[in-house]
Design a protein around this nucleic acid. Sequence first.
DNA 1: CTGAAAGCGCTTACAG
DNA 2: CTGAAAGCGCTTACAG
Lengths: 352, 352
Amino acid sequence: MVFEGSAGPMTGIRQLAQHLDISIGTVSRALNGKADVNAETRRRVLEAAEQLGYVANQSGRSLRQGTANAIGLMIESSPEVVDNSDNFFLGVVEGLQSVLSHHKLDLVLLPCPVEEDPHAYLKRMVARRLVDGMIITATHRVDRRIDLLVKTKIPFITLGRSRATENHTWIDLDFEGAASDAVDRLVAKGHRRIAVAVPLNDINLGYVFLDGYKAALARHGIGFDAELVVRAKSSEQGGYHTGEAILQLEQRPTAVLLIYELMAIGLYRRLGEAGILPGRDIAVVGFREGPQARFLQPALTCFRMSLRDLGVDVAKTLLAGMPAYAHFYPDCDRNMIWPLELVPGESDGFDL
Amino acid sequence: MVFEGSAGPMTGIRQLAQHLDISIGTVSRALNGKADVNAETRRRVLEAAEQLGYVANQSGRSLRQGTANAIGLMIESSPEVVDNSDNFFLGVVEGLQSVLSHHKLDLVLLPCPVEEDPHAYLKRMVARRLVDGMIITATHRVDRRIDLLVKTKIPFITLGRSRATENHTWIDLDFEGAASDAVDRLVAKGHRRIAVAVPLNDINLGYVFLDGYKAALARHGIGFDAELVVRAKSSEQGGYHTGEAILQLEQRPTAVLLIYELMAIGLYRRLGEAGILPGRDIAVVGFREGPQARFLQPALTCFRMSLRDLGVDVAKTLLAGMPAYAHFYPDCDRNMIWPLELVPGESDGFDL
DNA sequence: CTGAAAGCGCTTACAG
DNA sequence: CTGAAAGCGCTTACAG
């Protein structure tokens, strides 16, 4: 049933046009900032839109334009992530938005349900076409999501590498450099028996970090001892477990490298229970400097980076790969290794 | 230009229908599980869709059906929230999805950029119609977003009350009960000089918590002393500041109540610096039990709740208010005060 | 500078 | 059980 001449709630651009007594085409052009609109007409349209709270229905726009005017950030709300209260991507979000907003692109976070296969979820989200580009995080060594995104031809960027780095756009933290710097620093202080915590799962950064650690040891002529690699959850609990594992080694390491910011809290706790003080009895190098770690005593030696700046570069790099926005970012590299700056604390502040 | 008979990449349902040599109407009906489709036809359609990776374009569906098949959760990525690594809503997300997925509704998180006015952002998001219902959090005492949502008639629920509770659907934690239980417990141990930390901003829960605290004091015949109310950020830093503020009082309180889970970490640190041990020299009651707090020594007395279950009820209550889904949740209350269970630790484990 | 009209991809009465 | 057709709200060539 159609209420053609009715006074009913005819919604959308048609209502606005009728109210102004002009055509919907002109309304649309005025609203979208097209040049060929009379200044006075445009003023009236913008004023009326503001007053009536009109905003174009996105489905209508998307269908016509073939774009959603939105970028998606997939997040996996795995129990582990939830437990960890990892705010990593929240910090990044702000940087992302600061860039996207210049292009009138909205950011939507797409949380993959725990019960759903991430690959199937991503496939569905992409097929629905509610975003023009995707950002995926926590990439695994072999990550089928990347193949999927390549195949569907949707512009995307991964925050994290995978084994196949040549096929797509990515930005990743310099895990290798961090491991290397940490080992260098510890070796300079006389340490040779350095434990390292790596994630339990197949996440790629674990491999990169471990490789950096091994390479640095080799550089210093120190043999690799598999016993010193502790696999643990990336959480406080994982840090606690790491402490536990270290205490049970026959020959205790004199130093520990952590891969995830919150691990330090659990590690400090477990060591404390055994009467072992970081920076006095054992050297600890944490990972990303975070608000939690700032309250650890003694102060944690860790790595500094700006989540916001990372977000900015992720957004720029993604846009540089999208035809409609590429010309704004002509000199943007497709790949980028994000530097981590070592912040000396007191947790590794002693010489052997 | 139209490529009518071309072999080009004609996308969407039309391509699928052509491939199967049936009409798009039948394809649509088969895919959407309509009853009046031949079983064999349906099988062929589903198989082909699976094989070709076809998923309906959401804009097309939305435009035709007038629904987006998605629920939005607005999150404010204020610097404070980011710093705090508050995982509160991440925990809730899982519960939300477990309900929404039954109805083929997707959850999208809508992060309001820091530079944008939350009211304007919400207005824009609602007007774009990319979600059928909204969840907003961190409600303020006077929250214009609620008026906006009421006016636009979009189904919504707030996670948190505001001053006007009668006009809308909400679920909120029992801040009053928590404050009350904590005071009762502390008074039973002999405390009469109990400090309380409340948020700096206009967030509603601060008012409710403080009211509960005052009412409980009154019940025990203890006068309210404004000096004992510490306004602090809801973060580790805020906890540290709270410790600072308490230490500077002429007459030091014998107990402290916190409103936010991470505050305890900073408070412990500041007290520790002054040689004051929670549970021995001062009583501390934290707020929500979280993974961080679990590593505090001595164990923090705090409140337990299931974020997931909260998410489940938020989703159900929202859906109960949506005509299309109301019949699934006939007995759902429009409002709900979510209980918090006190978990005794050692941080308040001493009698005066 | 403006209006009339086509068409984006889909679902759904309607006719058969 | 299936097909042909209308129309959701919008933008954009096209004509004037």
